[in-house]
């Protein structure tokens, strides 16, 4: 039951994070701030999802790092794509 509550809490946080993303989208912040804030929330959501819904927090540390590593790889690809636009 304790774990069920934990999963429901994590789900609640992720839904809340989605609402925050939408709120940021509606604010009058500059585009750069919006993009950075929204993508940061997305990355945190992705890591949270991987760590809890894939049960990685019950694995050894070296394995728990895998989703973070994967998301770092993803972000590196994104940054590389952005950099290579300098053409």
């Amino acid at each position: 039951m304790k774990k069920v509550s934990l999963y429901i809490s994590i789900w609640g946080l992720m839904v809340a994070a989605t609402l925050v993303e939408i709120y940021i989208f509606t604010t009058s912040l500059s585009v750069q701030y919006k993009v950075v804030s929204i993508l940061t929330i997305a990355i945190v959501q992705a890591i949270t999802n991987a760590a809890f819904f894939q049960n990685l927090r019950y694995e050894k540390k070296v394995l728990s790092l895998l989703p973070i590593l994967s998301i770092v790889v993803l972000c590196t690809l994104l940054v590389t794509a952005i950099l290579s636009v300098g053409r």
Binding site: E21, F25, K34, V35, I38, L39, A46, N49
Partner: peptide, 22 residues
């Protein structure tokens, strides 16, 4: 299959802001 389903969810977590918000 639960792991795979969580992955599908993670991909959407990126697609949603990239296409609907930014």
């Amino acid at each position: 299959i639960g792991l795979y389903w969580a992955f599908v969810d993670i991909v959407w977590i990126f697609l949603f802001p990239l296409f609907y918000l930014i």
